[in-house]
Design a protein around this nucleic acid. Structure first.
Lengths: 196, 196
DNA sequence: TCATTAACCTAACAACTGTTTGTTTTTCTA
DNA sequence: TAGAAAAACAAACAGTTGTTAGGTTAATGA
């Protein structure tokens, strides 16, 4: 039983782990963690429910694997987008847009982090929280560099922004307004006074 | 079988409907809809699982009842807080604070609307969405009256604000900062330029 | 070539789920 | 106080769940 041993590309064994992760990510995102069954996931990957346990030792373990890839993906998008951007406010805008485009348009693994809250799987809750925190620290760093009015509670600003960003998933329709446009508008709402 | 007939206060029947609603509201909020069982709810209300079906015809029906009371509660808080407040910006602040205080401090039914998304119960999904929309229209009206810079997307502003507000549930700790303080800060972030 | 083993399948398990049924207890009213 | 209606119970049903156990296949490597 290799279980989560990802090194198993040694034997170029018909890589059915990837399809499994894809299926899980997709279903966890659109149906939710609790309402997705192992049989659903297995079927989506073209196999039997029991076979999943050859690759992952539990449903929670599968979620953790997907969640980790989700954060990796988000981080990669963020770091790539932020390279060569120096201006603090522009860095925020770039980060916000990258975040939104990742979770709204390229709806790959990344959306799992938004849709599935850590307490859905009690066993791995701490691990999931740690992953989420790791990602959010990027925004913490970006906001730390913003030239803000004294007494501005930067932690509160980050919580407000991330809360707003992650809730877009519930109403966003691709045809109305681009993810980029939403991101730019959000940053503008904060930066400039919206008052007439 | 009176089921959802709430008029059943005619016969002053030992009102066990209220304890049931209380139990459901509490458990739906802290554990989630799917992860709360009818046996959990019944036990919390001091009765047997089967007995719940004398009062509510299904689990979804029970959620709908709680959800309705939740929106009623939120609306009542809002209307009460908004009476005698005329200034548009002050109305927004009052509404935001009322909303936060209701869902964060008086954690009664109201938090159900935040924690349980409509698609957890497929049967009553449209009804739940209608209730949520009814409540959000209050904010729509308030934002409509704000003197904003031309070209400001008021719908986007409302979505951003409500997204931010409802996400506070996941990180708020009573001992750190009051719900009121959070609300005031959020409105200030939007109204004034936070830039130095 | 042949034993090994990774990868999968089938079938079942034990627990839990929302819900139903028939019966009993409680409460109100006539 | 007797009887009817309301409210609750105990027990089961039928389906689903995550998970396990044991058997089968096909690729690998010596």
């Amino acid at each position: 039983m290799p279980a989560t041993d990802v090194k198993s590309t040694r034997r170029r064994s018909h890589n059915r782990v990837q399809p499994l992760l894809d299926a899980a990510a997709k279903l966890f995102t659109v149906k939710g963690y609790r309402e997705t069954t192992m049989r659903d996931i297995a079927a989506e990957a073209g196999m039997q429910a029991g076979s999943v346990y050859y690759h992952f030792k539990s449903k929670a373990d599968l979620l953790l694997a997907v969640y980790t890839l989700a954060v990796d993906s988000l981080e990669a998008q963020l770091e790539s987008a932020l390279s060569n951007v120096d201006d603090p406010w522009q860095r925020l805008e770039v980060a916000v847009v990258a975040h939104l485009e990742t979770i709204l348009d390229h709806n790959d693994y990344s959306s799992v982090m938004i849709g599935v809250t850590p307490d859905k799987a009690e066993d791995i809750r701490p691990a999931l929280i740690a992953l989420r925190d790791r990602y959010e620290s990027y925004f913490e760093a970006i906001i730390a560099r913003l030239p803000l009015a004294k007494r501005t509670d930067r932690r509160l600003l980050r919580l407000m922004l991330l809360g707003a960003l992650n809730s877009t998933k519930s109403w966003y329709k691709e045809d109305e307004k681009s993810a980029r446009a939403v991101g730019i508008a959000y940053v503008r709402f904060l930066r400039n006074s919206i008052e007439a």
